[in-house]
Design a protein around this nucleic acid. Structure first.
Lengths: 183, 183
DNA sequence: GTCTATAAAATGATAGAC
DNA sequence: GTCTATCATTTTATAGAC
């Protein structure tokens, strides 16, 4: 069993469990069992559970934007691309069974660790910038360039949160229709 | 020490800790210590930690709408009342130090208990209806009565979530400005 | 109803052999 | 680097005296 294989399997298993069950409800023992690795192997690669959490956030952040790029690649036109952000989120909700935003979930678990907050903020900041750039391309040259971008961002965040509660994409879809009426 | 006094003190202490630290990160022992009651007294009034959680949700729900009523009472006019919803949320964010929505936090902690989900949905349903009723009073007799209400609801939810992340009321305030431009 | 003592299991993390 | 055995805490919950 190659080292990288083991390390990856640990991180993949931990990622799945952290998202499905919650970080605090996932014990080290369960990760060891389900990844089928030795106890000491986990602590060799990740000295503490917090290190595993930070690696989870980094990995999820990377995968998130990779999937976004794949989704957005074939879509042309700033207006259509803005609406595609909602489609991207709806598709993810379906795929992930409406368990909400990976990052907001971790913040909600009352983790006070500043390293965690920094990573989550960095993730949201980057996505917000992505929206802002698209809005500018629509030709909306009003003073409220940013207001439109903020609206889209908040509707997406609200839609994901309510999707997790109602186990439904309907709020994200409502957000899409609202934005479509603006553009 | 009267029974009701003990029971109330347990629930008050648990409520504070569940919100500040998170439900899963709060142990029964800490509640017993900080409420300064006997171990068996807690289990007498609340047979399990889940019972305590359900009582917390019920209590928070009641207090939430009581505080909303107090905030809204002096405000006249449907438009002003709709905007006052944002002010109410901003004021709460300041008071509660930006720890987010009590109810969304519990859902995010990956509690699968249907009794929990039912209570959180009931809370959101009631607030959503509150918004819908106000929107109808504005005279907005468009087909998109509900769309406006949904917009307000989602902007509020997104604002609270981002408030918890950025420890700032700015996103809720942005939501207010967005809605003010509609009305 | 409240008390203390304790159970039974799970937690995150470490030691030392190989 | 991987293994097994184990530690010290902490977890939720119960028993039985008063």
């Amino acid at each position: 069993m190659r080292e990288t294989g083991v390390k990856d399997r640990i991180l993949e298993t931990a990622s799945r469990l952290f998202y499905d069950q919650g970080y605090n409800q996932t014990g080290i023992n369960q990760i060891i069992d389900e990844a089928d690795i030795a106890r000491a192997s986990l602590y060799h690669h990740f000295p503490s559970k917090t290190d595993l959490l930070l690696a989870y956030l980094d990995r999820t952040h990377e995968l998130w934007f990779e999937e976004l790029e794949i989704h957005m690649r074939p879509i042309a036109g700033a207006r259509e691309r803005l609406l595609a952000l909602f489609d991207f989120r709806v598709r993810r909700q379906l795929k992930l069974k409406y368990k909400g935003c990976h990052f907001n979930k971790i913040v909600a678990e009352a983790c006070e660790d500043p390293q965690v907050f920094d990573r989550v903020r960095a993730h949201k900041d980057r996505f917000r910038k992505y929206i802002y750039d698209l809005v500018r391309q629509t030709g909306h040259r009003h003073t409220d360039d940013d207001t439109l971008a903020d609206t889209i961002f908040l509707l997406l965040e609200g839609g994901i949160a309510m999707g997790a509660l109602y186990r439904s994409p309907e709020y994200t879809e409502k957000g899409r229709r609202i934005v479509a009426s603006f553009l």
